[in-house]
Structure formats: structure tokens, C-alpha cells
Design a protein around this nucleic acid. Structure first.
Lengths: 195, 195
DNA sequence: TCGAATTTTCAATAGATCCTGAAAATTCAG
DNA sequence: CTGAATTTTCAGGATCTATTGAAAATTCGA
């Protein structure tokens, strides 16, 4: 199970990158290894390929599982568990985005909401709350929007992204044609909630 | 310069959150403090308000500066530097996104591109490259798109986001009306680059 | 149910990062 | 140019995180 130089570069890069977010080197490397592996691997194979202790790999796999980034399967006549990553990169992207939202964004939104229902007790606090509200509204808008488009079919989402800033043209186009018929519900010209 | 309980909660939360990404507690707290502060603060005020050493604050401010998240100003007749965050939350959002792309995404894209121009030397490596290409194409599409829409006016961007998944309706609307006139250049039905 | 195979837990330590105080460097009024 | 005010640097200690080996727990075929 020696890694090819190509695979090794990929794996090491993810190890380094991992530590640039909160995730640690081991976890990053294990994920990268599983991602490029042509077949699922068991924990011993991972430990050997990466030169980590068996127990470290066990920890790392548990962490990846908590991010919903692994699939587990069994081979016939083998009791060991074999690990792989989901195949579809768009599915992986969605999962990652969702988990990060849950861990990094939601707690902040909650804190902001809690703080915003209290009555300010001074002018300074009124200012603090005003700033908190600006942040809250931005985060709220961005995450709601993100959750919204994320639920689209991968192919639709890709179309949309390829369009890039040109969606705005569509926008103007619609206004020119002058029909709101295609857009029921939340309107493009709803009153601004964000500063 | 004692913090109100409200401001304190905000500041402490950002300290904790900070460490959930790569950024450390000190930096998170300093940023949060500046963000809600009604007036710019000098380093001593920050150190006192947060209970950090002067030198720690100096480090933290340098880090924030490297993220382009501070503005520096001088008060007349005072040699000390006074720090604030940019006012516009959308500008802050853009800056953060750009910096994170530079630090976290671009190096990965570079690594992937470099690895993808090499000729695979085995079947396994061919598979590794195929997986790397999937990842590359996804990241490339998402970051290009993001850079694209990020350059829009804040108000346009907000409109777009409020629309949410309903942009797709616009899409269908355009197809029904049957005109490509509004969409020159990169087309919505361009051949797929991504799996 | 037993026991071998496998996985998980956990206390101990290795390693990384943070934070400080003291000293060096810089800035600027006079 | 001088020296006080201010900021930055940096080595060392404090604190936090990662990693390991050994032991406990679990799983499952016989």
C-alpha cells in the first residue's frame, strides 16, 4: 500500500490545508487518501499508508464520520470495516457546507438573536445592538439563500453558476419584458431587511 | 473601558468561534470588540478592555491587518494609532471571502492543476487524477462564480439572494419566452465542464 | 456462550501554539 | 538631533492539541 508520489502530494497537501481550518492533519490526510483511493480501505491499510498509529486512525475516522464524509462498507467474508468517501463531489460539497453552517454559523446566529431581543440599557449598547443586527441580517440572508440554492439539482446549480454574474442580465430582462408571472412569493423587490 | 455585558457576550463568542476556524481567540476578540465599538480604539484600550498584554494586542492587530479587516486612523494631537473595522458589513463579507479564497482555495487549485498536467504512470494514478480533476472542476466553478457575483453592487446582490431558489424560475421564464438576447457570452446551455 | 478478531477508549507524553514581559526598534515633537 | 512616547519583536514559559500504546470493549463466527 505504498502511495504513488502523485497521491502522496495530494494527501500531504490536505494534511497541511486541514490545519488551516480547524481540522487536524491526520483527519485531512485520511480524507484525502479515501477520496483518491480506487477502492475502500480498512483502518489498518490507512494506518500503514499514512504512517499513523491504529488508534489515531480510529479517532480520525470518527471525526470524518461526524462530518458525514465517509461511507462504510463490508467485504464478504471479512469482518473489518472498509471506508470510502461519497463519490459525487457535489454531494460532498453540500454536506460540507451544511456541516459548517451547523457548527460555525448557527451558534453565532443564535447568540445574535438572543442578544437582540434584550432592551439596550445605554447608548453604547444601542450601538452594539445596531451593529449586531447588521451582522445578523447579513448572515441570515446569506445562509437562507445558500440553503435555498443548495437544495437545487446539481445540474441546475451548475447551470446557474456557469451563468455567473450574468444572472443579473436575466433580472433586467425580466423587468424589461415586464412580467412578474414567473415569480410568485418572495419578490425581487421586497423591502430591504439588510442595511 | 469596562465592557457592557452585552458587548462582552459578543466578544467572548467571537473568541470561541475564532478558534473553530484557524484564527485564535485573541484575534477573534479584538475583531469583535472593534466591530461593536462606537469609536476607534487604540492598542492600550483594547488590551485593557480584553485583559490581554499589550504585545499580544499588537500581534492580533497585525493579523487582522493581514486580513484587511481593520482601518487605522489618528486623532488630532495624539500620536497613538486608533483602530476600527470597516463599517459596511457587505464590504467586510467580500473582504473575508476574498482572503479566505487566497489562503485556502487558491493553493489547492494550484496543487491540483500542477498534478493534473502530469501523465499518469499507472491505472491507479489515472484514477487519482480523475478524482483530482472532479475536485478541481468543482472548486474552479464555484470560486469563479463566487468571484463573479461578489463583484456586483451590494444592493443587486441582496436582491438576488432574496430571490433565493426562485432564480431558477427566471431561468425557465427566459426559456419560455425563448429569447437569448439578454444573454450574450457564456451561455446557460454551454457544454458541461464538470462531471 | 466462548474466544479470536477488530475497534474504541484513555492516560500519558510529545508537539504545537499562545501569550507574556523585557528589550529593541521606530516615530515624531521640540 | 534628542529623547519621550509608542509600537514591534522575540525568547521562554504556560496552555492547549495531537498522537501513541496499552488496555477495555465490542463484534461475530463457530
Amino acid at each position: 500500500m505504498a502511495l504513488s508520489p502523485l497521491a502522496q502530494r495530494f494527501v500531504l497537501h490536505f494534511g497541511e490545508m486541514g490545519s488551516r481550518w480547524g481540522i487536524n492533519r491526520t483527519v485531512g490526510q485520511i480524507y484525502a487518501l479515501l477520496y483518491v483511493s480506487p477502492a475502500p480501505l480498512n483502518a489498518d491499510q490507512i494506518a500503514e499508508a499514512l504512517g499513523f498509529s491504529r488508534s489515531n486512525v480510529s479517532m480520525g475516522l470518527k471525526e470524518l464520520e461526524s462530518w458525514r464524509l465517509t461511507r462504510v462498507q463490508h467485504l464478504p467474508g471479512d469482518r473489518r470495516e472498509y471506508f470510502a468517501t461519497p463519490d459525487d463531489v457535489w454531494a460532498i460539497f453540500r454536506t460540507l457546507a451544511e456541516e459548517r453552517r451547523k457548527r460555525e454559523v448557527d451558534p453565532t446566529l443564535t447568540m445574535l438573536r438572543d442578544a437582540l431581543i434584550e432592551a439596550p440599557t445605554s447608548d453604547d449598547d444601542a450601538h452594539v445592538q445596531a451593529r449586531m443586527r447588521e451582522m445578523h441580517d447579513l448572515i441570515d440572508l446569506v445562509t437562507t439563500w445558500f440553503g435555498d440554492v443548495q437544495r437545487l439539482e446539481s445540474s441546475t446549480l451548475q447551470q446557474l453558476m456557469r451563468l455567473g454574474a450574468k444572472v443579473v442580465k436575466l433580472f433586467e430582462f425580466k423587468d424589461r419584458v415586464g412580467s412578474g408571472a414567473a415569480l410568485r412569493g418572495r419578490s425581487a423587490s421586497a423591502p430591504a431587511k439588510v442595511s
